[in-house]
């Protein structure tokens, strides 16, 4: 292999500009983290909402929740990205569509965040539903018997335990969301993968580029994992595992 290694490439200036390649990667990393964290907030809120709805006593709410989950789970993420970017604006009323296409600020970022957030929320909803389902039926009865409304029963009795139960699958989702955010490059978000491709083409130092990118994605997933492990430890219920039936 007669590849010409050049680890100094990151500090060289890009062709025809005064930024370095490192600046590009840092910008990309920033967008990756922004898209991922914003999408994570959406995913958690909607995931818990839809997952909860799917355990509600009303069959209509359950059906609505199931339809939501199936919709977002059964279409590839990349296709969803394109659908949100190219197709959804066409379905909007004319004036709004025009605004979205021409004037909407941070259009790529918002589209990617919403898309990734909804996609992940469907997966979280499924986990939350299963988590709630694994709690003894007597728990909600005990809440109701005490005089709680259904909403209070979920708030104080069901969801705090369901949350603890879904932490392990949530950890994977949190790690996944950083990795999946790379799909946002397809609609032109200047995130890490986008910047890496650009740097590779521009500098012709593909190996250094992708090794650096690998390390950055790895770091994100690793930190996500540690954050969740910390939360898991903090919310651990004394005696619960041993007393679980």
């Amino acid at each position: 292999m007669n590849y010409h290694w050049n680890w100094g490439i990151f500090f060289e200036q890009i062709k025809g500009g005064d930024e370095t390649y490192l600046d590009w990667l840092i910008t990309g990393f920033g967008w990756t983290v922004s898209v991922s964290l914003s999408a994570w907030v959406i995913a958690l809120l909607l995931g818990f909402l839809v997952g909860t709805i799917r355990t509600a006593p009303s069959p209509w709410l359950v059906r609505l929740g199931t339809a939501y989950v199936e919709l977002f789970r059964n279409v590839p993420l990349l296709v969803q990205m394109f659908l949100w970017f190219f197709v959804v604006p066409e379905l909007l009323p004319r004036d709004l569509a025009l605004w979205v296409k021409q004037d909407m600020p941070a259009k790529e970022f918002i589209t990617a965040t919403v898309c990734l957030g909804l996609f992940t929320s469907a997966r979280i909803a499924e986990q939350v539903r299963a988590g709630i389902g694994s709690l003894p039926r007597g728990q909600s009865m005990a809440g109701l018997a005490m005089g709680f409304t259904l909403a209070q029963t979920y708030r104080y009795v069901i969801l705090p335990m369901a949350f603890r139960i879904v932490i392990p699958p949530l950890t994977s989702e949190f790690m996944n969301i950083f990795k999946n955010s790379s799909v946002a490059f397809a609609i032109g978000v200047l995130e890490l993968t986008f910047q890496a491709r650009q740097m590779q083409e521009d500098s012709e130092q593909g190996i250094e580029t992708y090794l650096a990118v690998t390390v950055l994605y790895f770091a994100c997933a690793f930190i996500a994992n540690r954050v969740m492990a910390f939360i898991e430890k903090r919310t651990q219920v004394p005696g619960y595992i041993t007393s679980a039936k």
């Binding site: 728990q139 005990a142 018997a145």
Partner: peptide, 18 residues
């Protein structure tokens, strides 16, 4: 309101574990 007036004790206790 009604249920808050009626105390209930279950076979499996159903305390809130957290």
């Amino acid at each position: 309101k009604l249920r808050s007036l009626v105390g209930m004790v279950f076979q499996h206790f159903e305390l809130f574990p957290h």
